[in-house]
Design a binder for these strands. Sequence first.
DNA 1: AATGAATGAGTCTTCATTCAT
DNA 2: TATGAATGAAGACTCATTCAT
Lengths: 203, 203, 203, 203
Amino acid sequence: MSIDDAAAKQPKRERGKLRVAALLDAAAALFIERGYEATTTAAIAARAGASIGSLYQFFPSKEVMAEALFARYAERTALAVKDLMRRAPGRAPAQIADMLVGLMLDRKSDPDREAVLALSDAISNIAERRKPLREAVRREIAALLRSANPRLTRRRAEIAAILIAHTLKTVRAVAQAEEENRKPLIASIKRMLTLYIADVVEA
Amino acid sequence: MSIDDAAAKQPKRERGKLRVAALLDAAAALFIERGYEATTTAAIAARAGASIGSLYQFFPSKEVMAEALFARYAERTALAVKDLMRRAPGRAPAQIADMLVGLMLDRKSDPDREAVLALSDAISNIAERRKPLREAVRREIAALLRSANPRLTRRRAEIAAILIAHTLKTVRAVAQAEEENRKPLIASIKRMLTLYIADVVEA
Amino acid sequence: MSIDDAAAKQPKRERGKLRVAALLDAAAALFIERGYEATTTAAIAARAGASIGSLYQFFPSKEVMAEALFARYAERTALAVKDLMRRAPGRAPAQIADMLVGLMLDRKSDPDREAVLALSDAISNIAERRKPLREAVRREIAALLRSANPRLTRRRAEIAAILIAHTLKTVRAVAQAEEENRKPLIASIKRMLTLYIADVVEA
Amino acid sequence: MSIDDAAAKQPKRERGKLRVAALLDAAAALFIERGYEATTTAAIAARAGASIGSLYQFFPSKEVMAEALFARYAERTALAVKDLMRRAPGRAPAQIADMLVGLMLDRKSDPDREAVLALSDAISNIAERRKPLREAVRREIAALLRSANPRLTRRRAEIAAILIAHTLKTVRAVAQAEEENRKPLIASIKRMLTLYIADVVEA
DNA sequence: AATGAATGAGTCTTCATTCAT
DNA sequence: TATGAATGAAGACTCATTCAT
């Protein structure tokens, strides 16, 4: 809400929409390749086949680009989570673990995801921006647990949801860093989550 | 061993050692506050009460500073892990989980730790440098598991160790981001690890 | 009369005239608020509720806008001066001082005036453009003095007119910067001018 | 007092002092030649025989340069005014007018003066910064008037001082813009001021 | 050793103006 | 005519690193 909190300008013409998408794609690719700091706005524009002025027509600053990229990613994620929840109720712990890990693996295929990660420590308030998304996910997981065991207190479900969400991040780390062990690791994560969810739900 | 493989110069006098320590402390604090890229060598020198010239007397480049910081951290961590292992053999899963989580909480008090994390995506080969330390930790955890259940295959122990190590990182994340829920979350992590370790060990 | 001597295009339809007026009003307001250099053509268009393309439809350059603004102001000023002169002949020094100061105060209410001042050092040849207006005013004042004292040499009247004109500018400065002292200051200026005019006329 | 209210860094070595002076001289010259906006920091550095980095070593922004230039000018002016006041008491109106106009003409020879004028509308708060100087001058003039006529009320002296100070600015304007009429105009200003001062003092 | 000045390539961003629809 | 996208030269400023004292 600060004064220079200018947001990305919405393009009004078709040409503009294509530009914005191309710029965002280029930014995502470069943020992944080089990191946020090392990526120059000139490079983004060049890769998108646009002039630097064109970039600034839509994004008043490099930081706003990052935010726009995050918004695009958050929107897609929210959709995926919503979709998951439609299919979840009434499942056994092992199935739930499966679905959650599956969601993470699916989402990993979104090229924006990795780019958004490169943003984490680059933009100070991206952490704040990410909060609503994170909390939505937690709420959904907590609801899932309580639908599996209605006697679970709200508080306990909440704590468990936080831990499960954190653990799910491991899926991403594992999928990136440990390519040669990926499969058994994914299986192990599912196993660990299954044990934990069962423990929580049957408490 | 190449020519430009310059490392931090070892200070010869007491005064020099203090300077180096002060510079590393300042760098650590600033890397945490602003990140690696956003921290200027001038700011490091200023916070350490030294001149910029003095900084370059001991560290031939900003990158070398980062490496020196990492080395200081790795050394302390190695000591802590070694110490843990001396006390570990013959414990039950719950105790092992306790000790591992306790180690993370202990190590968190080292101000270098967070700073080293800020280095991750800043310096490409810091990831490489970190590998040996990470693998040492994994080896120790795997050994622990196999000492608890000698029939465990090397491979299974290794996979489990990787997952446990990843999960331990959650301790740090939790301790930072979720202050109000810290205690129940730590307890939950211990519970989840206990369940998983028991599952692995009793397989 | 050179080829690139492009002036503001005369709008043909009513809608165009309104647009031009709105653009000039917006420009005037922004020049006052931010100065000529700091005002962007985009901001002018935006405040006038027009598109940037529309602005350039009527004004081929930012400089031409400034000139058009000046022209609008000069026209109004010339009318006011002409009107003054009709009522001036045969008055006593104190009355003349009164009328001149009154004219300045009147003209101050024209929002273009302040804007035109913001143009002074921004556009080099605006000083040139201003010359004819300035000299017309001086001629009128000189004529006034000589009608009050026909024996006054042309030269003396001219010098006095220049000084009086300069002093009249003080009215504007005073009215802007010294709000709390405005009234006595205006009175003092009138007194000073009265003394001086009397001195010149009775010489 | 805002956060980024960084001031010019004081040089600590002789070399630095020379640099700062050279940069300020270059800035003054260029501000006069081209105006504040049109002067680039690169041009200032070049004219001073310094690198652009060297300029920013001492002046964190172009605006701070302008402020430093103003400070240098204000200091010199304050000295001149103080000196004047030492010689002023007990003089007749004509002599006082003479001295005041003389002061303006003297100060005009300071190359910083004209540069400072080019700053007026460029830097928003320069008006604020100028206030103390302006008020000091007014106080001195008011004191002068009251020493000439002790029965003058504080208020009346103050108002008269403001008007006199404003009128003195005319000296500068005249000296610049009306070169061919300078002499008789200066004489006329002295005459007008003499009349006015006498009127005030003998009231 | 210590200090602080010097360097300049490189970065983000701006903005008057032109063009395509 | 109206609109909004496109352009790119230019400008303020940064910062790791080197040098002179």
